[in-house]
Computed example of a mutant assay.
Amino acid sequence: MNKKTDIDIVIRYLEDPDNEQHKQQLNDWIQQDTANLDIFLDMKAMWQGDPLPAASAFDTQGQWLQLSTTLDTLPATIAPTPVAAPRNTRVVNIKTRYWWAAAAVLAIGLTWTWLGPGSYKTITTAQNIDSLHLPDGSMVYINTNSTVRYSRTFGKNNRHIKIDKGEAFFDVVKNDGLPFTVDAPDVKVKVLGTAFNVKTAQSGVKVFVQSGKVAFKGKGSGKEVILTPGQEASLARHGNAVDTRFYKKNNNILAWRTRCLTFDDAPLPEVAAALSDFYNVEVNISNQQLNDKKLLATFPNMPLEEVLDIMRKTLQINITYKNNLVEIY
């Protein structure tokens, strides 16, 4: 990050995060290079006052020399315009702004010196599903609109993954000497070798185990629950109580990865929840008398309109779909 324009993009967003133009500029910049997300997260942490790691062997004199060179090359347009009446105030504001930006460059340099050039590799998906082959042989399948990070030293002295948002499925290679851990908001998951799904949302975090065993631990309460195949644990955001339940085989939790929805005499509310999750739409059952209706069907990666048409004919119900809202009545 050596361009002042890049610094300005981040600063403008941090100064006014609700500004849509600033959001778009920041998003475009992050999309240019995945390393930019690491830089932004570091700058955001500093902006919020989070402490940086303690220094070890760091060339302070060399970094300040580089900083001085950067300041010397700032464009002359930073100087005040002679005819401007409030020029003294503007000089202070601009100098303060660029000194802060230069300090941010130095701090980023410090962070990267201590932690390595971007201590995490970041994968972000938009409207696509992606997969990641980790250095230890494990596989990660990443759902849409998700962000996953892993250490650049992954597989050497750690097997640590972070889910900042969204959902991912893990197929983990067993290594008794190096446990596989996943950090999600309010939750830490630890495994030795298994296949499991982690879903984060505004409401909380859910972990579903397909095979093997998983230790699910809430960071707030410290309570640890051992999950076995077919079992799911959930923790509300900022909550302490861990809820668990067992699912039958056809539960559609992993439908986002298999791209197939299967309903085995599933009650209509369960069908509605699965459709909402799979197609990212809102589904509302306005006639509660329909809750007892059950659906027996399989939909292999079919468009939502076709699924709704089959449901309408099979269950003899009324369904409308408009503006991302499905009404069942």
Rank of each mutant, 00 (worst) to 15 (best):
T262Y: 08
N128S: 13
N284L: 15
A184V: 14
V105H: 09
N175L: 10
L14H: 03
W100M: 11
C260A: 07
F246A: 10
Y13I: 05
V173R: 06
Q127V: 01
T258K: 11
A76T: 04
D176E: 13
T244Q: 10
A126P: 00
Q31E: 07
V148T: 03
R90N: 00
N291S: 15
P185W: 03
P86I: 00
V189H: 08
A35L: 15
T194R: 14
I161M: 12
L67P: 00
R152G: 07
A35T: 13
T144A: 10
K190M: 14
D42G: 12
S119D: 12
V281G: 06
I253N: 10
N19T: 09
K190G: 09
D72S: 06
R159N: 14
M43P: 06
Q210A: 15
D50E: 13
E305G: 07
V209L: 05
D292N: 13
N318D: 06
V187W: 04
G212K: 13
E270A: 15
W112G: 05
I78K: 00
L178W: 00
G212Y: 11
D309Q: 08
N93Q: 04
D16V: 01
V105Q: 14
D50V: 09
Q231I: 05
H133T: 03
P51T: 01
V148N: 03
N318V: 07
R259C: 06
A297Q: 09
Y141S: 13
T34C: 10
I9L: 07
V283M: 05
G109L: 04
M1G: 15
L325S: 04
I163F: 15
I285V: 10
G116W: 06
P185I: 07
G62M: 06
V198H: 01
D42H: 13
D183H: 14
L261S: 05
A273S: 02
L110W: 05
P51F: 05
E270P: 02
Q289W: 06
A84S: 09
E167M: 08
V173I: 09
V326F: 04
I142S: 06
I285P: 09
T194L: 07
T320Y: 01
I123K: 12
Q21H: 13
N158Y: 04
Y98Q: 00
T147K: 14
D292H: 13
G218D: 07
A79L: 08
A76Y: 01
S286T: 15
T124C: 01
V205Q: 14
K219H: 08
T153G: 05
S131H: 10
L37C: 11
G155M: 14
S221G: 12
G204H: 03
K23D: 07
G212F: 08
T89H: 03
A241F: 07
L74M: 13
T73R: 12
K188I: 15
F40Q: 00
L192N: 09
Q127N: 09
A79Q: 06
L261Y: 01
T320C: 03
I123A: 05
T113M: 03
T5A: 12
L178E: 11
